[in-house]
Amino acid sequence: MTFSWIASYWPLLLAGAGQTVLLLVISVVFGFVLAIGLAFAQVSGSPLVQHLARGYATFFRGTPLLIQLWLLYYGVGSLLPMIPCIRQSPFWPILREGFFFAAVSFTLNYAAYEAEVLRGALLAVPKGELEAGRAFGMRPFTLIWRIWLPRAIRIALPTIGGEIVMQLKATPLAFTVTVMDLYAVASKVRQDTLLVYEPLIVVTVFYLILTAIIARAFRLLEAQVPVRR
């Protein structure tokens, strides 16, 4: 095995790693915010809102992420250029890129899975703590922000860490819509040099290191905010 090619391709490898991390951060941050709304919609929303939130979760959890990505990129992406106001807008340079569709599809998919995690965590919060907050005169929003949601997140921390790792392992799918992530760079190296295993080994090591960092960060976080039962 030879890894001398890294000297020539390291700028591309760094750029690809940056795209991978950026895609992960965007999908996790925005997906988590959306998941909070979906979780509360299922737990305390009206019957119609509950059915809509469950339908959303069922659709995105029940269909492959690759199909969702292709539906957005090849479906919606092919329609956007036909809308003059979008094509002429200052956002068009972003909307025409595969990275945009990858970020949207990954965010929507992650939100569906995380919403189910948070829904279970919200239901696991002891009712006595919520009743105590109401007894102190807390308004619904204050009760959610200061007691219910933080308590649920503490309960769900181990699962949230696992979901982020799963999301990381899904990022190579972005390669299929022209995103130059780390896996795409490895494919380019393979095409240019005819090396098969070495580029994949580099990608594997990167994902292992990033997974270890995520796992370590969540272990430290769990130690700082232990769950009280």
Rank of each mutant, 00 (worst) to 15 (best):
S187E: 14
L221F: 06
L210G: 07
I213F: 14
E116D: 11
W70V: 07
V189E: 01
Y207S: 09
L72T: 04
T204A: 08
T2K: 14
G133S: 11
S105K: 09
L208W: 13
Q68P: 07
A111V: 07
V21A: 09
Y9P: 01
C85W: 14
Y113L: 05
E131T: 03
R229V: 15
F206Y: 05
L79A: 10
V227E: 12
P64Q: 09
F101P: 02
W145L: 11
E97Q: 14
R146F: 14
L12G: 04
A223K: 15
A53E: 02
Q224C: 15
A15L: 08
L168E: 11
E198R: 07
I36F: 06
E129V: 15
R119V: 13
Y9I: 09
C85L: 14
L157T: 11
A53T: 15
P140N: 07
L221W: 04
L118H: 10
W92H: 03
F91R: 00
F99Y: 11
P199D: 08
Q50A: 06
M166V: 13
V117P: 02
I147M: 08
R151L: 10
A7H: 13
V125Y: 02
G120S: 08
P158N: 02
W148N: 11
E114T: 13
K188R: 09
L65H: 06
G98R: 00
S27Q: 00
F32G: 01
W10P: 09
I26T: 10
V165P: 04
P90D: 08
G16C: 03
T107N: 05
G137R: 06
T178R: 06
P47H: 08
I67L: 14
L69T: 01
V33W: 10
A135W: 13
L149W: 05
T20F: 02
E198T: 14
L38E: 03
M180G: 05
R216T: 15
F136P: 04
V179S: 09
L122S: 04
F40S: 09
T142E: 11
G55R: 15
D181T: 05
Y197C: 01
A135R: 02
R96Q: 05
W10K: 05
R228N: 14
L149S: 00
L22S: 09
R96H: 06
L95R: 01
R134H: 12
G161F: 01
